[in-house]
Structure formats: C-alpha cells, structure tokens
C-alpha cells in the first residue's frame, strides 16, 4: 500500500513533467522536439547527479549545503590541473569532493555537529580556499579539456547526451544500492530512528561518515560534468544549483525529516526543475521575476505534494 502511494506519486510527478512540456508546446508550437529533449537531459544531468548526493544525505535526515561549493571547486581544480594531464585533473577534482565529504562526515558523525551548520561552514571554507587558490595560481579562467567538454555536452547519434550515460549508470547504482544493500537500509534506518538503529547494533558514525563522503564525491562528479556542459570552470560555476539540488530531492518525494524517499523521485524532480527553467526562459521573463516564479512554484509543488499524499 505504501509502495503503491509512492509509485503513484511518481506517476503524478511524471504527469506534471509532461504537462510542463505541453505548456511549452502551447507557448511555442514545434518547440518540443528531439533536440529540445536532448537539451533538457543535458542540463538536467549535472543537477541530477548533484541532487543524488543530496538525496543520500536527506534520507539520513541530514542536509548538505556544501554540494554546490564542492562542485564548483572540483570543476575549477580539475580544469586548472588538466594542463598537467587530464587524468590528473579529474583525479584532483574528485579528491576535492572526497576530502570535503570526509570532513563533513567527521564533523557530523563523530563530533555530532548539526549537518546544516557543518556543511554550511564547510561550503564557506571551500569557497574561500578556492578563491585563495585561484589568486595564488594567477591564471586566467582555466579552459575545460576536450574530454570533459564531450562528457558534458557531446551527443551520441545526434541526440543522446553523453552525460546521460554517466547519469544513468550512477542512477542505477543508487536506486539498486538504496533498496538492496545493507548500506542503503542503514541510511533509511538512521533517518527514521537513530536510537533504534543503535540498539540494533549499528555503529551509526561509520555509516554517516561514508555517506557524507559519497555525497562529496557525487558533488565533484556533478561539478566536472557541469563544467563540460557550459564549457567553462569559473569561480561560481555551480553555486546557483544549491537550492535546486535540495528542491529536486523534496519534489521527488524524499522526506526532509529522513527515513523515506528514493532516487527515482529525485531524478523526476531534477527534470521538472530543468523543464520549468526552460518554460520561464521561453516566456522571456526577467531574471528577477524568474527567481520569484521559480521559488513560488517550488513551494506550491511541495505543498501540493504533501497535501495529495497526506504525509505528516
């Protein structure tokens, strides 16, 4: 019965997605075509991957406010190290994510700092450090290597974005992993009732440490893909994606209080946000108005969602 409701909520979300696409078609007939779908997927991929890490953390009733800063830093470090070898660049970028994730994990899991505070502070630390690094290395904005550019904005067979393959792979791992592994079970368990989880003999700090690290790593991947998509790695690359990463999780039906949710929902959430952005762009509204509408629509969606499903 629960599963039924959850599945139905995904159906509702997909219906919403289709409705938004229909709206675009009404505003500008002929706009919704294979090319448009390809574009949407390409832009949704980095957000979807960023929101993947966020989903893991929110399931444990935490939140990671450093994901966007980490993504930006990873992309920048990757690009600035790429001249010494693309592999080295990518590894350096991913390491940024792992290290920041580990620090977040130690703070939250070992020292019991509130996730909100811990990750907000780490986000600031990351951004500050990145600024120092960029000034010290005194270079113009580093260019994005071709491999990454292809990863972020290349297509196969004309329409299928390359990044979609990476996204699909990660999605498969996450969806299967959350449902069918001990680690996935423990994430839900910790989000639902940490005390009960402890009484069952689980050392929760190990799980949380691994989880925040995984979130950092996924943020780094998202940053690198995004750099490829926009073909640039500046100092504020992914910063606009922080709130959308949380919004995608919430719209996707993962409880902000932890203990329930799925990555499948988050994927649809990320697609809805991307299409919504596309609608607003098509309507040619001013940026300020766009932000207002964007915020209002997210609130409405979340409210409607809670109401329809009767979640407490």
């Amino acid at each position: 019965m629960v599963r039924l409701v959850q599945q139905r909520s995904i159906v509702v979300l997909i219906a919403l997605l289709v409705a938004l696409a229909g709206l675009i078609e009404v505003i500008r007939p002929g706009a919704v075509n294979a090319n448009w779908v390809s574009n949407i997927l390409e832009f949704a991929a980095p957000l979807g991957i960023l929101a993947a890490g966020q989903t893991l953390v929110v399931i444990t009733s935490g939140i990671d406010l450093s994901v966007a800063n980490v993504a930006t830093a990873s992309a920048y470090i990757m690009a600035s190290q790429a001249p010494f070898g693309v592999t080295r660049g990518i590894i350096a970028g991913l390491l940024v994510g792992i290290v920041v994730g580990l620090v977040n994990g130690v703070g939250v899991a070992v020292f019991r700092v509130q996730p909100l505070i811990m990750t907000l502070a780490m986000g600031l630390v990351v951004t500050g450090t990145l600024n120092v690094y960029s000034q010290a290395s005194v270079r113009s904005v580093p260019g994005v290597p071709d491999v990454i550019h292809t990863l972020g904005s290349g297509t196969v067979l004309g329409y299928v974005p390359v990044s979609l393959f990476l996204w699909a792979l990660l999605a498969a791992v996450l969806i299967v992993g959350l449902r069918g592994t001990g680690f996935g079970r423990l994430l839900y368990a910790l989000g639902d009732n940490p005390e009960a989880t402890r009484l069952a003999g689980v050392r929760g700090w190990q799980v949380l440490l691994a989880n925040y690290t995984a979130c950092g790593l996924l943020s780094a991947v998202a940053g690198i893909v995004l750099a490829g998509t926009v073909n640039a790695a500046d100092l504020s690359l992914a910063n606009v994606l922080l709130l959308p990463s949380v919004a995608a999780v919430v719209i996707g039906g993962t409880s902000i209080f932890g203990g329930s949710g799925s990555y499948a929902g988050t994927i649809v959430g990320a697609l809805i946000l991307t299409v919504l952005n596309s609608v607003l762009t098509l309507l040619d509204v001013a940026d300020a108005v766009k932000q207002v509408l964007y915020g209002a629509i997210i609130v409405l969606l979340a409210a409607a969602y809670t109401r329809v499903l009767g979640r407490e």
Binding site: R185, D192, N193, G201, V202, R203, S260
Partner: peptide, 22 residues
C-alpha cells in the same frame, strides 16, 4: 517505538540487525 523504524516495513525492521556491521 524506541526500537522500531516507524516508517519502514516490517521486513526491514526485522532484518535490521542482519546488516548491522560494516
């Protein structure tokens, strides 16, 4: 309620100690 995961299924609750170590 101190020992149970209220939002999770009976199966996941019973199986929790089966996944309790690294």
């Amino acid at each position: 309620l101190q020992a149970l995961l209220r939002q999770r299924s009976v199966r996941e609750n019973i199986a929790l100690p089966l996944v309790n170590r690294f």
